[in-house]
Design a binder for these strands. Structure first.
Lengths: 359, 359
DNA sequence: CTGAAAGCGCTTACAG
DNA sequence: CTGAAAGCGCTTACAG
């Protein structure tokens, strides 16, 4: 593969600034100034360099540039799973806006696995990327404060998205998980439901949502029943697999005596799984079971019946997080700003999957 | 921001191999050998280096490594839109398998815009990434053979996915677009349909699918009607927006005299849009209009009625493409292999959206 | 096994 | 405006 011939014509080597300089009859420094747009150069030199660049089809080596300039124009995005429409919309919006600023984005799927997340943090750091956006897999009190600081408060500008990391004072952009769940639960209650199930998983946003759910119950004097909260995950099924929502829902609904009259599913994958399970159990929405999904999606209005959802503004999350990250990178945002934690309101989009008030 | 103090304690500088060497009492070369795992070192030296590394919390600088070793352990994935479940599943599978080999993947969304694609190719090349996977936005005969070669046959190992680029002899992994459309169309015909519409867009895979559609028509002596092919795109709406399928479908179905009795939608976004339009027009599936979607998705079996689809194996596409790319990068795959173009069979998943045979 | 030195391809003061 | 030189943080022959 690596035959070396004496004649230099065989291996088409990669041209460098030096080759361009030679051809243009100027120094490498001048070539750099012309191409890199720093410093100044005479018209004549500029012209010669441009021609030589063209002739050799020269492309600057960004690695070498990074070496000197200490930036890579690369951002790492650490999420659970790019197949979750919630994350793919966020990724899409971020990439679109970042690319306009010259950045590329590296996608890292953790599947809610903290080990993988930490491994990503390490290799991304080694790559000396310029910034990190992370929806962390870290669960409450899984690590000590010191460990958390060591993992997430490195030298790379970082924005926490989707879920707060408790005790970490880094810029954070999340949805109002408590409020969204409170509103959804209240909606069920207003329609006469008393037994309301929550199809969740082990992710950390869950706790705030469950808090919101409990508060709504409490404000309406409805007793809390542990059976109605599914947040343990399912054995042998990773978070992020449709079967998780399917199995969890099936288990909660299979016994007609115990089953709730309404369920709230905590992300679109879980929603998909739940709908699958409900369909298979032969239950009718909303008569047998009312449903509210967390996260809106294109087909929600087309389902029979159209699905009521708690909608998070992925676009806003992405744009706020992106702008803050760019500010951080450019040293514009003050690390100790007051408004570090941005919480965005959710919206209850009422369609037909909760039926009408029972008398 | 860049205050320099005489004392070295203020700026917590980034440690280098040299700092480790100093602390360990060995040379930088030895540190490299220990940490990089190349060459050999005595037990004593190894121990000292490891301790120093630990103490300084030293992380190697991958940029500097890339500079010497000429690789970046980064792969570029150029696709239309990560929000399309078809692409996100591919991206997911690729990333999962690549990360095991030490690679990160950069996501590039083109929205089927060739200019953006070319710009990505350029900046990815400047970053000296190790490999490219690309579902190109290039349309038939949009560029000359020479231009195509110049754009895509650069020095970086490249695998073409999803859609062949005609005239380019690079490794390619695609679905059998012709066959899939032929099968879907034949299925409609078997059920008695004669007026079959195709909801497409401007992407290049379309042409093979339309060919398959036409062949099925022809084999069954059904005349071809230009009106039933929507492949122009919609003004002011980019490919990848749900509204594209919505508008296109609405236009094709609005006139009861002209409208087909069956439609085939060419990707999930278009399917979503079409279902939205059908719902809004008050048409019933399958009685008023039979539907087959291209690409399967979680909710397809839950729709009322469950949707029949042409399923592409995203997992196989991803794994074959990834393995071939790794082989290419490692110089194992022969550039002039016979089996350059891999075509994977599609599968018609029959559910209930086409109804039963009309008499 | 180990160190000194060269070099990867750029950028950036420093002189002129 | 321009060139020579140093240096970014590693790896890799080359000696010893």
């Amino acid at each position: 593969m690596k035959k070396k011939h004496d004649s230099e014509k065989i291996e088409k080597k990669e041209y460098t600034i030096r080759d361009v300089a030679l051809l243009a009859g100027v120094s490498p420094a001048t070539v750099g100034r012309v191409i890199g747009g720093y410093g100044s150069a005479s018209k004549k030199a500029t012209q010669a360099v441009l021609e030589a660049t063209e002739k050799l089809n020269y492309f600057p080596n960004a690695i070498a540039q990074s070496m000197k300039k200490k930036n890579t124009y690369t951002i790492g995005l650490i999420i659970a799973n790019i197949c979750n429409p919630y994350f793919s919309s966020i990724a899409r919006a971020m990439e679109e806006s970042l690319v306009k600023h010259g950045y590329h984005v590296i996608i890292c799927n953790t599947d809610e696995d903290l080990e993988r997340e930490i491994s990503y943090m390490k290799t991304l750091y080694e790559k000396r990327i310029d910034g990190i956006m992370i929806a962390s897999a870290l669960k409450d009190s899984e690590k000590s404060k010191a460990e958390i600081d060591r993992i997430y408060k490195g030298p790379i500008p970082t924005i926490i998205i989707d879920r707060e990391i408790p005790g970490l004072d880094l810029p954070t952009v999340t949805s109002d998980n408590f409020g969204g769940a409170y509103e959804a639960t209240s909606h069920f209650i207003r329609l006469g439901h008393q037994r309301i199930g929550v199809i969740g998983t082990t992710i950390s946003t869950l706790s705030h949502r469950v808090e919101g759910y409990k508060k709504a119950l409490q404000d309406n004097h409805i007793p809390f029943d542990e059976f109605l909260i599914a947040n343990k995950g399912v054995e042998n099924i990773k978070a992020g697999d449709v079967r998780e929502g399917y199995d969890t829902t099936k288990k909660m609904l299979e016994d007609p005596q115990l089953r709730p009259t309404a369920i709230l599913t905590l992300n679109s994958l879980l929603t998909n799984g739940a709908l699958l399970a409900i369909d298979e159990l032969g239950l009718k929405i909303p008569d047998d079971i009312a449903v509210i999904g967390w996260d809106d999606f294109d087909l929600a209005p087309v389902l029979k019946p159209p699905l009521t959802v708690v909608k998070q503004s992925t676009y806003n999350i992405a744009s706020i997080a992106t702008n803050r990250l760019l500010s951080l990178i450019n040293g514009l945002e003050n690390g100790s700003s007051e408004e570090k934690k941005v919480v965005l309101a959710t919206q209850l989009v009422i369609r037909e999957s909760c039926g009408i008030k029972k008398v």
